[in-house]
Amino acid sequence: MDLWYMEQHTPNVKFSVKVDKQLYSGMSDFQRIDVFESAEFGRILTLDGFLMLTEKDEFIYHEMIVHVPMCVHPDPKKVLVIGGGDGGAVRELLRYPGIEAIDLVEIDEAVVEVSKKYLPGVASGFSDSRVRCHYQDGLKFIRRVEDEYDIIIVDSTDPFGPGEGLFTKEFYGNCFKALHADGIMVNQHESPYYKDDAYAMQRAHKRIVQSFPYSRVYQAHIPTYPSGHWLFGFASKKYHPVRDADWDRWKKLGIKTRYYNTNLHAGAFALPTYVEELLKDVESEC
């Protein structure tokens, strides 16, 4: 049998993974959720047909979205994760003993349930007493919160579909309001390579620059995402993502990582020239 999962990365480019079998398929109130088993990437979670994570390479994404802000902030205690229903970001956060509370705001409870059942290695943190799940629209949740968090992690889907509202100026502005005076927001920032992704990336950057005093972008290599070249946004009220990072303090925590390290942290903010130009283009509009 020849069964392939296929995702269209652009109208002219397809990405495909050979699938052994489909483990789950269901329609939630918000989207279609599927889980596949594959030889190359292990289990694959897709939402509305778009690949969200695979067991083999999810560590890259989750380590980079969590450890970068956690290394910069001197004493993060309370963290908000918006999206992230697979639990990967929560799992990484729970590795820090200083973390006192994690609020996870996921619009679709079904994503959490499916992840718990089919991706136990990713969704391992949900039973921790420090984690509280809120199943509602992130934009609605954040509207009511003021001066509450040290770090906000926006682990969203793409700006088309249920995650749409998480790429808007009103959302970033509300995140600013929800953070303490030295708070940091990190977000899934799309890819700079293909035209449509790059456009979404630029728009998000523009809206963040308008909302935060410091806004930088860093990168990682994620094999199963379109073009493999992925960006994260680092927005902050006070701390510089590299100058204010205390490498030794982080190293002393003794957290074992597979992708992240402090050298890579500093290097991840060095971007290809064409990406810098894309960012500068929208910064000049602000």
Binding site: D137, E170, N174
Partner: peptide, 12 residues
């Protein structure tokens, strides 16, 4: 979700 955007934008 669009209503959420409108409300959040007004709040901002």
């Amino acid at each position: 979700k669009d209503i959420e955007r409108l409300v959040s934008a007004l709040s901002e």
